[in-house]
Structures are given as structure tokens and as C-alpha cells.
Design a protein around this nucleic acid. Structure first.
Lengths: 241, 241
DNA sequence: CGTTAACTTGACGGCCCTCAAGAGAGGTGG
DNA sequence: CCACCTCTCTTGAGGGCCGTCAAGTTAACG
């Protein structure tokens, strides 16, 4: 992996939700903008712990996050879950459901969140006449594929410390891209959920957080994370390659 | 994970490449079909070991496999590679490059292969006027996302034996869906490539193949695999859940 | 027939999981 | 307001799975 390949992975704030603003400078007329407004009309609030959708539910819309924090996960019969992703403002969820017309995972809000429901059929139709919209849709889907490949790399090749470092740096960049601090942020998820996402156990996550703190790389206070030595974390990742 | 969720994952033979046939029963006229032929006109042969594309190359086309076998992988500076996928007839490659306009992985033919190069910009334009094409494109991309999530689950949660069992069953189903034998097939990749894909070392892959053979689950003769007890393999997977 | 790549098998060790106990934080009801 | 409960997190001890290292075998190819 090229240095910073994973690091530079971030789901840019280019959500279809905010496409109105995105399209303005491109020279859209009022008519097109009005069409977009039809799409972005349906907003919903989701309380902490509530499901936005569940596995097996029929697929009709994709969801753009206006604010808040979600996890998506697959649930097993025995109750174990695997977290497939964490999602924040500007991210699009539900793209994996198009192929089967049924949601293939659960989406749970980890804090109070606002989402924007986008009927996919209408979006698809609208993308006929709006090349920019079409291009953006393809980019969003493609970015998810490319990002998932990075995650696969992480799960398949990295050791626990490298995974945690990559995870923290990715979070940092995504917060930073959204105007929040890159060096200090609140984790919205538990150690167990982090572990599930990274293919580790919660004890391992906790231990490595402590280790990073001892080494002066980060400061941890429960869910408050402060990156003290970003380059140090990046060096950890570099050792993979 | 629901029983057979991973098992049922298979990239259906619905490649855009064979869309001509696919669209016929839907009632396309000669004009539309001619448009499609423009897309599928550019065919290429790739010899064993040749690269179809490499990381960093500018993105212009996606590729539908007409025949043969590919692996896609990310290469590290130190020479180590992580295999992100194996691809056979009917699969589409290169979808991860749309977001960056640059290929993010290497695609290597593991045997003599024939592919069909599809200029993405033209495909995208064409999808404006052809809803079926548009829908198929979205489905193909969505299926890749959903499948990658299954792989992430495998890498994050399964033990070595479970990964191998899932791998063999997935291969079996994909061969079967293409008209080949589900119970007996030739591996196109080395143990090392399998290991890289599954997050294991080649010795582990070899050991587990031997173990499966001792247990009567499969018969192995180098690259020739015969599934002797498909249900036994599925039971291995079931124990995950 | 010689060379090399790919595979198999064994011994050993390390990383992470498992099991366990305890501490801290947050919420609820008295 | 405080006691109490529960969820989450931390830390330790021990064990198991798989990686590492090594040697030998087989297959493929010129």
C-alpha cells in the first residue's frame, strides 16, 4: 500500500444530500435545482440506538447522513455481530441493497442523527437528465468499493496495532474533512464495536489504546481521543509496507 | 450471518458484456442493440501473467471478463501483495477506479483470458436512455459492495478453516453458475494467492487442505479440487454463527 | 535432465483470544 | 442527593491458533 493510501481514504463531504449546493456552481438552473429538492425533501431523525433499517427490509431508498453517527453491521444467529462500517455526516448508506432489493445489513444510530432519505428509483431516473448527478452517484458507489478494499487489506494483512493506528488516523481525517478537530475527538462507538470492525476483541482494543498512551502517541480518556503524535501513528502503518 | 449468505454470494453471469443477450427478451429494438454493440466492440486477449491494468494507470474503461481468470491485488513497497479478489467469466473489473479516475489495484490474468473493454463514459451516457442498462450497472456495483462486506466479515470473524471452507464453496457456486462442475474444479491461483486473499499464510492453506482431505471433505491433487462433502463444509461455516 | 516454482509437513514461538476480576461512569429510583 | 445497578472499560494470567523457519518432495518447463 502506498504511504497514506488508507490514510487518505475519506468519504468526502459530497453527499447527494448536499448536492444542491454542490450543483449550484456548476451552473444548474432553477428547474434542475427544484428537481433535486424533490429528492432531498424527506428528512428523518433517528435517536441513539434506533435502527434506520434492518437486514431483510425491502430496499427503496438510500440514506445521506446530514448529522450524527451510524454503524452498519451484520447480525449472526447466535447474537454476534460484525460491524461493517462507521458512517458520519455526508456519508451515504444503503448502497449495498440495490443489487438484491433488500437491505443486507443493519444501520444503527450511535447518537442522535438526522438523515435524508433519497428514493433510489427517483434518483436513478433523475440521473438520466443530470450528468453531474449521475457522475456523483457512480463516484460515491465506486469510492465505497475502493474503501472496502482498503479495509480488506487491513483485516487481512495488518497486526492489531497497525489496525488501530489506521482506524484512528482514518477517523481523524474524516472528522477533519468535516470541519472538526483532527487531533481531538469523541469516539461514538464502544471498544467492542471498534474491535468488531477491526477483527479484534474489545480487550485487545483497550490494551492497545493503553499502550499507545504509554508511548505518547495518543491520550485516552474513555471515549475522548487526542492524537499526540500523528506521525508516530503513521510510522506504525508504514512498517506494514 | 444467515445460513448460506456467503455461500449464495456469487457474481451472477449478468455481465454488461453479455447485455446484448440480456436485453433481447426485454424488447429492445435493433437501434438500441446496435448502440450496445458499440460498447462491446473492443475485445482484448490477455495472456497468463499479463496485467490488464496496474495501480496508478488512468481510468477510462471497466472490463467484463468473457473468459479466463483474474486476480486483483494491491502491491506494497516491500513487494508484498494483498489479493482483493478473484474474477472469472461474467465479472466486471475496474469499478473501484471510477471515484479517483485512476486504477487503485493491479489486475493480472491467472490464465489466458479474453476481456471486453467498456469505455465507462460512453456506458454512463448510454445508461441515460436505457433504463435496463442503468439498473444493471447499479446492480453490478451494489453487488460488489455487498460481496466485499461478506469478505470483510470473513476476514474479521472467521477462523482459518472457516475461511477456506467459505472460499471453496464460493468458488464452487460461481463455477456452477457458469455451467461448470460445482464438485470438481481447477484452482487457477497458488496457495500463496489464496492465503493472501484470505488473510492466511500459504503453509496454513496447505495444511488445512490436507486436513480437509483427511476428514473426507475434499480431495486435493495440487490444483485440482474435488468437493466430496459439501454439507460438511457448510457445517463448518455454520459453526461460526 | 536440470532448474525452478509450488507444495507439503514438522517444530517452535508469538500474537491475540479467553477467562477473570475489578474499577469507573452513567442512569434510575428512593 | 445518594445508593444502586448496569454497562463499559481496564488489566492480568494462561492458552490456542496460526505465523515463522526449515527441510524435503513434486510438478512444470526449457
Amino acid at each position: 500500500m502506498k504511504e497514506g493510501n488508507i490514510l487518505n481514504q475519506l468519504k468526502v463531504v459530497c453527499s447527494l444530500c448536499s448536492l444542491r449546493e454542490l450543483c449550484l456552481p456548476i451552473g444548474f438552473g432553477p428547474a434542475e435545482l427544484q428537481q433535486l429538492d424533490v429528492l432531498t425533501g424527506s428528512k428523518r431523525h433517528v435517536k441513539r440506538g434506533e435502527y434506520l433499517y434492518r437486514t431483510g427490509m425491502p430496499f427503496a431508498s438510500i440514506y445521506a447522513i446530514r448529522g450524527g453517527f451510524f454503524k452498519t453491521s451484520i447480525l449472526h444467529e447466535d447474537g454476534r455481530e460484525h460491524v461493517t462500517g462507521f458512517h458520519m455526516m455526508g456519508d451515504i448508506m444503503g448502497l449495498d441493497a440495490i443489487s438484491t432489493d433488500m437491505h443486507g445489513c443493519d444501520a444503527v444510530a450511535l447518537e442522535y442523527s438526522e438523515i435524508c432519505e433519497i428514493p433510489f428509483e427517483r434518483l436513478s431516473e433523475l440521473s438520466m437528465t443530470m450528468p453531474v448527478l449521475r457522475h456523483n452517484l457512480h463516484k460515491v458507489m465506486s469510492r465505497e468499493i475502493a474503501f472496502d478494499h482498503e479495509v480488506m487489506l487491513m483485516l487481512g494483512k495488518m497486526r492489531a496495532e497497525e489496525r488501530l493506528a489506521a482506524f484512528l488516523l482514518n477517523l481523524s481525517q474524516r472528522f477533519s474533512a468535516r470541519g472538526y478537530s483532527a487531533a481531538s475527538f469523541q469516539l461514538r462507538m464502544t471498544r467492542e464495536e471498534i474491535g468488531s470492525y477491526l477483527g479484534l476483541k474489545l480487550e485487545t482494543v483497550s490494551r492497545i489504546f493503553s499502550k499507545f498512551q504509554d508511548e505518547g502517541l495518543i491520550a485516552v480518556q474513555k471515549k475522548l481521543i487526542e492524537l499526540k503524535d500523528e506521525n508516530g501513528l503513521k510510522r506504525l502503518l508504514g512498517s506494514l509496507a
